[in-house]
């Protein structure tokens, strides 16, 4: 259960989606370009991200909670701690077990974790402060092919309908079979359960193909001829340009601090 857009009236919400999309992308690129173990630069990036979250008034909790989802992946980087080239330190576990670990591996691991977490914070902020349709318009304005934007736009419109459909299918299944009751598992063998789920998937796809026929017919009836009416995107005002420019300058400054001044 994850909420999407959180409507507020804040400085961040009022900015053009184009500015937010570009700034988010720039933020993530410069953060990831920052060398490993540049702790003070990470701190600056984090302070900037948190300041933006606070000024957006979507609530720190919402964005922090979302950012934790992505952190499970950090497991993939744990081996770095124990496989570095300088296994000098040893960790003594309670059982008397001794494990060699590498300090450079540890700092690399921490760097990856921190970068990843801050990146997710910023991405979550974009999703929480910008309507998806506005993001799509901004992308179209940024030269993403119109056809692709149109497909994603239609997908977005039907996502809610089809998600409800899947929920109904799942409810129907659990009311009839494959639901644990009093510790006993109802509903056949593993292969049987898999097959039932597969049947549901097939049925969902069939219904969706048929639905797309109806959608197409409806579009034709309203004069669709292969081209969607162009969505006008207002060009960025001078003020928006200034905000974007200053923001990116700040990012370059943080990055430069880490690269040229170090740590």
């Amino acid at each position: 259960m994850r909420e999407l857009y959180a409507h507020r009236d804040s400085f961040i919400h009022q900015r053009s989606a184009k500015v937010k999309v570009l700034f988010t992308f720039a933020f993530i690129i410069f953060l990831n370009l920052t060398p490993h173990a540049s702790w003070s630069a990470y701190l600056l990036f984090l302070i900037l991200a948190l300041a933006l979250v606070l000024s957006s008034r979507v609530g720190l909790g919402l964005v922090l909670k979302r950012s934790l989802f992505a952190l499970l992946f950090v497991l993939a980087a744990i081996p770095l701690v124990f496989t570095g080239s300088d296994l000098q330190r040893t960790l003594v576990l309670p059982g008397g077990l001794r494990i060699a670990y590498s300090l450079s591996g540890l700092s690399r691991f921490a760097s990856i974790g921190i970068k990843s977490w801050i990146s997710v914070l910023v991405a979550a902020l974009l999703a929480a402060t910008t309507q998806f349709t506005d993001i799509l318009k901004a992308l179209a304005g940024l030269k993403v092919p119109k056809l692709f934007v149109a497909i994603v736009g239609l997908m977005w419109r039907y996502l809610f309908v089809i998600t409800d459909e899947v929920r109904r299918m799942l409810r129907a299944r659990s009311s009839r079979s494959a639901f644990a009751l009093n510790g006993r598992r109802a509903g056949g063998s593993l292969a049987w359960r898999a097959r039932v789920t597969g049947g549901m998937a097939g049925s969902l796809l069939l219904r969706s193909i048929e639905r797309s026929d109806r959608v197409y017919a409806a579009m034709l009836s309203r004069g669709y001829n292969g081209v969607l009416p162009a969505q006008e995107v207002a060009p960025l005002s001078r003020q928006e340009w200034w905000i974007l420019g200053l923001g990116i300058l700040l990012l370059i400054l943080f990055w430069g601090l880490a690269v040229f001044v170090g740590g």
Binding site: W156, V161, R185, L204, V215, G226
Partner: peptide, 24 residues
């Protein structure tokens, strides 16, 4: 042709939502 947008869009939504389908 013209069918591309509705067919791709609806099926993308179906695959997205279909990822909820699971079996224990």
């Amino acid at each position: 042709g013209e069918r591309q947008v509705p067919l791709m869009g609806v099926l993308a939504a179906a695959i997205f939502a279909g990822q909820m389908l699971n079996f224990s």
